[in-house]
């Protein structure tokens, strides 16, 4: 299945949890928040929220801002 992560098309064999997605993409030690299809996924739901084909994922981190 294809999903889009931070604007880039990305392929996975089957639906995976947000937790697994972060692990597979190398984000586990990052300080990030995740939105799936413009909805925030809270951290406690990372293991139970599954990514489906065509989902749009945003992985965001703190950045300097005004």
């Amino acid at each position: 299945m294809q999903i889009v992560v931070n604007g880039k098309p990305t392929d996975f064999e089957k639906p995976i949890s947000v937790q697994d997605l972060l692990h597979r993409l190398g984000y586990l030690d990052h300080f990030v928040a995740v939105a799936v299809n413009q909805e925030c996924v809270v951290r406690r739901n990372y293991g139970t929220h599954f990514i489906k084909a065509q989902d749009q994922i945003e992985i965001l981190a703190p950045m300097a801002g005004g």
């Binding site: 931070n6 604007g7 190398g26 984000y27 030690d29 990052h30 965001l60 981190a61 801002g65």
Partner: peptide
């Protein structure tokens, strides 16, 4: 502060 897309390759955040 703001929020921006994070690259898996960099851990600046």
């Amino acid at each position: 502060v703001s929020l921006r897309r994070e690259s898996a390759q960099e851990n600046m955040s």
